[in-house]
Simulated assay, not measured.
Amino acid sequence: MPTKSRRRGSGEGAIYQRESDGRWVAVVDAGYINGKRRRFTAYAKRRKDAAERLPELKRRAKLAGQQTTSIKTVAEFLTHWMDTSVRKNRAPTTIESYQGAIVNHIVPVIGSRRLAALERMDIQRMLDAVAAKDGVGPRSVENVSAVMRKALNDAVKWSLLETNPAQHTEIAKVPQADRKALTVEQARQLLFHVADDRFEALYALAAIYGLRRGECLGLRWSDIDHEAREIHIRQQVVVVNNAPLVTPVKTKKSSRNLPLLKDIDAALDRRRERQAEERLAAGEHWIEHDLVFASMVGTPYQPANHHKRWHASLKRAGLPDVPFHSLRHTAASFLVALNVHPRIAMEILGHANIKTTMEVYSHVQQPGMRDALESVENVLRHTVSSTA
């Protein structure tokens, strides 16, 4: 049986061989951190390999000591995490989304809690509070949970915590708000009333292709390929710090090529003519961005301004006051009515996975469920009456 041998090489730290299985153990004692004794340990079959692990263990012990001197609470840790990890590696929209989750939901509930004392029940309490808020949808709760889990994963990686207390939390079910879509007749009515609007083509793109608002506002003239008769969806306009910003579309599936339809092509031609007038009126103030739906001086259009314009258009057309995103559901309902295969619908709508498409399809098909079942009932009623 191997004997337990403790040795300390020059500058190596503590290395010893374990009696139970003969493995070599490298250990660095970081002392007391937040009232708890912290040791950083690595295992290896050979003493040489254990010695090679020591520099990393020392680095982790030093980092833990440095960070805990300034990081005491959950709020302090999340500020540090955003500054050192998120802002350097994430897209602007992701940064804003994470910051919103932290400021609006996480910090108000558990921000003052000591990080070292954070437990699963604290995070569960916070998630339950988020789910109970009015106007908060299931995706918002999932986002808060994901931010907390990712942040605490880094806390474990940085040796600030031994385990991630967010790992086994549960998300309370939040009812999904009904998706509102314009009917075929309502969509016709809308396009009729916006025929003289500078955003006529934008509304048509959203109603027919199901483009997101950001994708419409990010569309460039160079994305209209007349030779191939295609529209290329490659970028979007998002809001960061209350300002419009052009970024690539979020996922690979969102980047897609759509057929250029005749009516859409004609609407885009009218938009090009109108923009030429706008460029002439702006004169030297025009800043070229090649955007189809630019501001009156060529810059990216502020989505908040379009939000107001959209609701004014609905009112003028005498239509229900629904979100602009409802046009995307309108497009999906058209695809369902025409029996378009979900895979093709997924490509048109730019969904990241077929699950999202099927959820949309199942929702859209609900109004048709009664008709289908009544048809079955009529068949059965005829059968039953004929045998009576």
Rank of each mutant, 00 (worst) to 15 (best):
I224R: 10
T247W: 01
A201V: 02
H311A: 09
D134G: 10
R60G: 07
N242D: 15
T41L: 03
A30K: 11
A195Y: 04
N305Y: 14
K173F: 05
V376T: 07
V364I: 10
A129M: 08
T84Y: 09
H363G: 04
H193M: 05
M296F: 15
V174R: 12
S10F: 13
E56G: 01
S385L: 15
R270S: 05
L152H: 02
R60W: 06
L115Q: 04
Y301N: 08
D223G: 03
G35E: 05
A181K: 02
Q235L: 07
E200F: 09
S159C: 11
G111H: 12
R59N: 12
S145E: 03
P342Q: 11
R270P: 02
I264T: 08
I102P: 06
D197W: 09
V174P: 06
D83H: 07
R139C: 09
V238W: 08
M121W: 13
R179S: 06
K262Q: 13
R23G: 00
S222G: 05
V130S: 09
Q275M: 11
A172M: 06
A281C: 03
A282S: 13
H325I: 04
A101P: 09
V74N: 01
V86Q: 02
G100W: 15
R60M: 05
T387R: 13
V107T: 13
H105Y: 15
A44E: 07
E185I: 00
S10Y: 15
N164D: 04
L349C: 06
R309G: 13
M148L: 13
F192Q: 11
F192G: 00
G31N: 10
L115R: 06
S326L: 07
N34F: 07
D29R: 13
D178I: 03
R270W: 11
N257Q: 15
V376R: 08
E273V: 00
V384T: 12
R328Q: 06
A372L: 14
K150D: 10
V147T: 07
A44G: 06
P92S: 05
D225N: 06
R179E: 11
I344E: 14
G218D: 04
F199E: 01
E374A: 08
R179F: 11
H311E: 14
L380W: 15
H325V: 05
A282I: 05
L190T: 00
S97W: 08
Q176G: 03
V156S: 03
D371H: 09
E12F: 10
A345F: 14
A187P: 02
N143I: 08
K58V: 00
V322M: 14
D225A: 02
D265V: 00
G350A: 09
L54E: 08
T163V: 08
L182R: 03
F324D: 06
V86C: 02
P138D: 12
Q67I: 06
S97E: 14
E273M: 12
G283E: 15
R309I: 06
R60V: 00
V246H: 05
A116Q: 12
Q66S: 10
L211W: 04
G214F: 03
P248E: 05
E359S: 10
M148E: 01
L191C: 00
K180I: 00
A337R: 14
L261N: 04
W221G: 02
L190A: 05
Q17Y: 10
E12I: 07
R47M: 12
T68Y: 13
D128L: 09
W158S: 01
I348A: 09
Q366L: 14
A207D: 06
T383W: 14
G350K: 04
P323D: 15
R234D: 00
V74T: 01
